[in-house]
Design a protein around this nucleic acid. Structure first.
Length: 945
RNA sequence: GCCCGGGUGGCGAAGUUGGUAGACGCGCAAGACUUAAAAUUUUGUGGCCGCAAAGGCCGCGCGGGUUCGAAUCCCGCCCCGGGUACCA
């Protein structure tokens, strides 16, 4: 029965009681219990909790409470990531003190967080802006500095010439202008505080494997680091300099037809006097300097570049003189900032070479490679043309697409081979073809035909020998090479062996490659070397090392990952704890002077000078402590630094002598589950993983991976299906919702929207939340259905429900857990339930609706909290069904159903089937050919009319 | 562009070691209660054909394939979202 309740009163009563009794206080580690560290990403105190915060914190609380009720000591801390740009912007715009603004926000948001009624471990809280926190951020930085993990280097920034300052990527508009003053911004190299994360790149990749993370997150991390193995090879320039290039494909060195330097490459500036077209080059450097990296790498845009007139390079492997270009598709920060370009085997080089008329030289051949669309050339005939050297050229003959279909090709009196030979000659222009023979045939596809039937089609590969006197077969002109670029000559023994030993799938793959070739794409895979002197016939992989060795290069790895630039010319951040002596040398600030506090006498209006440089107090403080002429570092740290170690502070937040004791780390780490948004899957996760590894290297931690498990959640959208934003006016205010329907309802609605660990988008639905409120009101009325004569069905249903809820919580499918409880309530409202079942049901619901269940729990006379009871368990025997209804299919179409025991034999299934009249009628009309019976799943009768 | 996700009724979704597609909730429709409305409650509810029942056909972004059987596996596309190194 539906029964309204006063959620405000209930929530207030129990939140106060819980606080009073401290039931969620973690305190010391209780060794009698299992531990679980559940972490959620700490919020930025923007001023108001939004509904996304509820989704992020209230829903995992279900899991936390479930684990608590399993007797686990759960750590579920919360704090604030409170440094950052918004506070500073508020300060500039509204003339507020960033600290005052931030602290009042935190105070208010703390109240809002309390309204969730979560089992937060508030006794372990911390905040990045607390001097007792950033003291340790600074201290760790000084340790990194002393151990060469942090260093003064060069980084690329967005420079706004109008504001005379560095601006964030976010402040750069799509047309590369500054959002504040509309000046055209540029990329500028500046001295920067850097962290040597690249030193840890291998560990960061290799240690991912054992983690219990979704594969796609591991994948993005690996891709972000982007380790590629390759070689560094030196090319000598005609001006006497040497350029080192990085290539992942040293095996293609014979195919290098030009060299490309990044526009920022240092050799260009040092040799500008030798360039015959310096003005043009200089102009190009300036233009590309304005482009965003993503634009430079955009494969759909036309490649740009400038030839360096007056310079050539020598290919070390064959002495060929090749031209040198600068082009912005080469990045200064990646590899050596210079590449050898092999247009035949790299798509970008190919596009560039085509545009600039540079020769294309093919040096790799292979049978299978990159997949391309097969829609246009689904089927047809493929010839392997064999030249006098005995090599094969794979050729796809489009003209014959329909040759083997009824009504195609054949002329009177011709057999298939004669027909093919005649048409091949017409198609290829080869006049002297001989000895055609069928080599293999491959099922490629079904192709639709007029009417309903489809024809299974063959693709057929013929071996066609080309007469050696046929000029065309032995010397293709450059134009023809361009045209049939990726029809590859392949060594004969390889191809025959390949075709003999491959599966249908691999042969299909082969055909697809052939099709790709016919479409004029270039080939970027591995293969067998051609046109490569003494290396001809060698396998790509083998050739990589061999060629590198021959030219005196070295095998090496390079990473897409760059060192982490952490300096910010901003006020509201952790001050970088460095002072400079009168000679300008950097010194770390010793622990006794930490926290090195943010000065307060600072004007943050952007004037082109870092805000801290304007502080007289900071300057005086520095001189007072370190001596006359000493100056402070005026940059603050990237906020990603603050959030790289907060989980270490939570577990030892009162420690005044260490950032986090080894003992605390041993006790609580690693974090068992880290809930968070997909937006943090690459950078934050990588930075914080790095941080722990760096600490370990310095002996400050014994751990090497912080997060055992990572779970991403989806995104809550506005009721209109769009992302919530002020301008769209579709923001759902959680306070308003909680005031209207209560915290339990909001929490359960968020949990009910969809599976939690799924990165989907969920629009807010006002009707949907009303449904959850109704459910809770029915739960509130459930005590009216108590009966002294419970049925056995009721008990079975309860145990099935416990089982379902338990299993679903473990995999964060709170939506289906709730649905199971709804089914339970729907049923027992009709049939009644025992007091014992009622109690167990409340316990089952307690993690989802902590306030209401606590209230009802006390109403039936319990004196202690429901949240300190043990979660119900189920009896497996009671959850097993005696019968199951399965579908009956006839030729794969569902025609009825039968009810039989789950483990019934096929004979029983069939005899049951015979009792069903309408099914029996159908079967009598046909001849049964085959019976497929999967117990508990399906009975399928395959028959023929 | 590149990397990583997502796409199933009017809506949120269930169902994935291939086995009755649409549980549960919302919405909608009809009935009960009520002077009336709200609330509550009962029943129905993927689409099309059919008065109805029976039944049939079609349906999981699109196009193909494998299979006795495909939302699920394979191939090729389209659309939407997140990240892209100074937003956090």
């Amino acid at each position: 029965m539906h029964k309204r309740f006063d959620h405000k009163k209930i929530e207030q009563r129990w939140q106060e009681k819980w606080k009073q009794d401290g039931i969620y206080t973690v305190g010391e580690r209780d060794e009698k219990k299992e531990k679980e560290y559940v972490l959620v990403e700490w919020p930025y105190p923007s001023g108001n909790l939004h509904i996304g915060h509820w989704h992020a914190f209230a829903v995992p609380d279900i899991y936390v409470r479930y684990r608590r009720m399993n007797g686990v000591q759960v750590l579920y801390p919360m704090g604030f990531d409170a440094f950052g740009l918004p506070a500073e912007n508020a300060a500039i715009k509204r003339k507020l003190d960033p600290r005052a603004w931030t602290e009042s926000n935190m105070l208010y948001m703390r109240k809002q967080l309390d309204s969730m009624g979560n089992a937060f471990s508030w006794d372990k809280t911390t905040s990045s802006t607390d001097p007792e926190y950033y003291k340790w951020t600074q201290w760790m930085f000084t340790k990194f500095f002393e151990n060469d993990i942090a260093y003064r280097g060069e980084g690329v920034v967005n420079w706004c010439p109008g504001c005379h300052t560095v601006i964030a990527n976010e402040q750069v508009q799509p047309d590369n202008t500054c959002e504040r003053c509309d000046s055209l911004t540029e990329k500028k190299k500046m001295p920067q505080w850097m962290i040597r994360i690249t030193d840890f790149a291998d560990e960061l990749i290799d240690d991912i494997a054992p983690l219990d993370w979704p594969d796609h997150i591991k994948e993005s991390q690996k891709n972000w680091i982007g380790r590629s193995k390759g070689a560094e090879i030196n090319f000598t320039l005609s001006i006497g300099e040497t350029v080192s290039v990085f290539t992942t494909r040293p095996d293609t060195l014979f195919g290098a037809t030009y060299l490309v330097l990044a526009p920022e490459h240092p050799l260009i500036q040092t040799n500008k006097n030798l360039l015959l077209n310096w003005e043009e080059v200089d102009q190009y450097i300036k233009t590309s300097g304005q482009k965003a990296e993503a634009d430079r790498l955009d494969g759909t845009k036309e490649k740009t570049g400038v030839k360096l007139e007056g310079i050539t390079a020598t290919n070390p492997v064959n002495g060929e003189k090749i031209p040198v270009y600068i082009a912005d598709y080469v990045l200064a920060a990646y590899g050596t900032g210079a590449i050898m370009a092999v247009p035949a085997h790299d798509e970008r080089d190919f596009a560039f070479a085509k545009k600039f008329g540079i020769p294309v030289k093919q040096v790799i051949g292979k049978i299978c490679g990159k997949r391309e669309s097969i829609d246009k050339h689904r089927t047809g005939v493929y010839g392997l043309l064999q030249n006098e050297k005995g090599e094969y050229l794979i050729q796809h003959f489009k003209k014959y697409n329909y040759h083997w279909l009824p009504g195609g090709g054949l002329e009177t009196g011709e057999d298939e081979e004669e027909c093919l030979m005649r048409e091949l000659k017409e198609e290829t222009g080869f006049s002297k073809l001989k000895n055609i023979s069928k080599l293999t045939e491959i099922f490629l596809d079904y192709i639709p035909r007029a009417g309903n039937e489809s024809a299974r089609n063959h693709s057929i590969i013929y071996l066609v020998e080309v007469d050696s006197t046929d000029q065309k077969a032995t010397s293709l002109t450059p134009g023809e090479i361009e045209q049939t670029l990726h029809n590859e000559w392949v060594h004969p023994d390889k191809i025959e062996e390949y075709l003999r030993n491959t599966s249908i799938e691999e042969r299909s793959e082969f055909i697809r490659t052939v099709i790709a070739c016919a479409q004029g794409k270039n080939y970027t895979g591995n293969g067998i070397l051609l046109n490569s002197g003494e290396f001809d016939g060698m396998d790509s992989e083998e050739a990589k090392a061999a060629i590198t060795e021959k030219v005196g290069g070295r095998m090496t790895c390079t990473y897409r990952l760059r060192d982490w630039s952490i300096g910010r010319q901003r006020y509201w951040g952790t001050p970088i704890p460095i002072v400079y002596d009168p000679q300008g040398k950097a010194h770390p600030i010793p622990l006794e002077h930490l926290p090195w506090k943010l000065p307060e006498d600072v004007d943050f209006t952007p004037t082109g000078v870092a805000p801290l440089a304007k502080s007289i107090e900071l300057k005086e403080r520095t001189e007072k402590i370190f001596g006359a002429g000493w100056t402070p570092e005026v940059e603050t740290m990237d906020t990603f630094v603050d959030s790289s170690w907060y989980y270490l502070r939570y577990i030892d937040n009162q420690n005044t002598t260490e950032f986090s004791s080894l003992e605390a780390q041993k006790t609580w780490l690693p974090i068992d589950i880290y809930f968070g948004g997909a937006e943090h899957n690459t950078m934050h996760l990588l930075y914080s993983r790095f941080w722990l590894k760096a600490l370990k290297r310095l002996g400050l931690s014994e751990q090497s991976e912080p997060y055992t498990r990572r779970v991403n959640r989806g995104l809550i959208l506005g009721p209109d299906g769009n992302k919530m934003s002020k301008s769209k006016g579709n923001i759902i205010d959680p306070d308003e919702q909680v005031g209207r329907v209560g915290s339990d309802t909001v929490k359960m609605y968020l949990a009910f929207m969809g599976p939690y660990a799924e990165m989907a988008n969920y629009p807010w639905d006002m009707g949907g939340i009303a449904g959850l409120r109704r459910f809770l009101e029915r739960v509130n009325g459930l005590s009216d259905h108590l009966t002294d004569n419970p049925s056995s069905e009721e008990k079975i249903l309860l145990h099935k429900t416990i089982k379902k809820v338990t299993e679903d919580i473990k995999v964060f499918k709170f939506n289906t857990a709730i649905s199971a409880m709804m089914i339970f309530v729907n049923q027992v409202e009709k049939t009644g339930l025992s007091k014992k079942s009622y109690e167990q049901f409340l316990q089952l619901l307690a993690p989802f609706a902590p306030h209401l269940t606590e209230e009802l729990w006390s109403q039936i006379g319990n004196k202690t909290s429901i949240h300190n009871t043990l979660f119900p368990t189920f009896d497996e025997k009671l959850t097993l069904s005696e019968t199951v209804t399965i579908g009956v299919q006839i030729n794969g179409k569902v025609r009825g159903q039968i009810t039989i025991p789950p483990d019934a034999s096929e004979a029983i299934a069939l005899s049951t089937l015979k009792k069903d009249e309408s099914l029996q009628q159908r079967l009598l009309a046909t001849t049964i050919q085959k019976v497929i019976y999967v117990p508990g799943k399906i009975l399928n009768i395959v028959s023929k009319d």
